[in-house]
Design a protein around this nucleic acid. Structure first.
Lengths: 144, 144
DNA sequence: TATTGTTATACTCTATAACTATA
DNA sequence: TATAGTTATAGAGTATAACAATA
């Protein structure tokens, strides 16, 4: 089973690389890094969230997050507000300009990939989703 | 079709994240970065290759590659040799110690993931492979 | 004492452009 | 002139540990 496992993993990695390569190009055209786009995409369509939650969702450690948020704040794409109830917390949300960027970049990154899927049928999607969902469930199994 | 496309891409990205999270942990236990492991895995089981080819396979630009190779050479994991026919080229290959690291780390990174797939049947693998292969072919379509 | 987030540190990756040496 | 790889530069992400403010 070794070979099959390796082949699947290699395929998964190749697909991801292809997708990221294309989307990274788009993202960079807007002067954003992958991490910065990750934050913006996570904050998009939300009322904002704490740094803690943002870190958990994007898998960045708090120290890293501070730096990325600093750069986004310099670009006036996000705002940080001290929490009203728990004053240790910072609430991070997109600024108006950030919302605008999200509304502009996100669909383009998506569209950029989507163009290639005009020939995908409902069945094709279903098969892909089923296979990936099963894979995900296996990958999620906890390990020491 | 927008929703289905997004759902598939999100699944793909989640799978990749889960896999990379687990393997990154293993890789770091060996004191390697993702890029360094990428080089070692690419050089493993080959007689070596030029920097140019290595850059193409790992998608690193030549400037970046030089730095990563420098660090691997400091760790005595690779060797660089001036090409005999074309003296502009550098031939990069794993050192004995590098081969050993490859033989040790690679299976562990693989095994680390593989454990979770004991319940995958031949059919499961086939379905996953087919779906990913189709996805890959679509992602490979050239775009401006 | 524990938690949230920042700061400081040190390293690595990254792209780009100028450079060296070979072809 | 063109190509293979290095060097220099500047910016960004990363983990970690020490820290301040708040709970």
């Amino acid at each position: 089973m070794d070979k099959r496992y390796l082949r699947s993993i290699r395929l998964l990695s190749e697909c991801m690389q292809l997708f990221e390569q294309a989307s990274a190009r788009k993202v960079r055209q807007f002067g954003l890094t992958h991490s910065q786009f990750d934050i913006i995409a996570t904050l998009g369509n939300t009322p904002g969230m704490t740094c803690k939650e943002l870190g958990e969702r994007t898998l960045m450690t708090k120290g890293t997050l501070t730096g990325v948020l600093d750069r986004l704040e310099e670009k006036r794409l996000i705002q940080r507000e001290r929490g009203a109830d728990d004053r240790r917390q910072l609430f991070v949300r997109l600024s108006n300009s950030g919302e605008q960027t999200f509304a502009e970049v996100f669909p383009q990154v998506v569209e950029n990939g989507k163009q290639r899927f005009t020939s995908y049928t409902a069945d094709d999607y279903q098969t892909l989703e089923d296979a990936l969902l099963k894979l995900k469930q296996h990958l999620e199994q906890d390990q020491r």
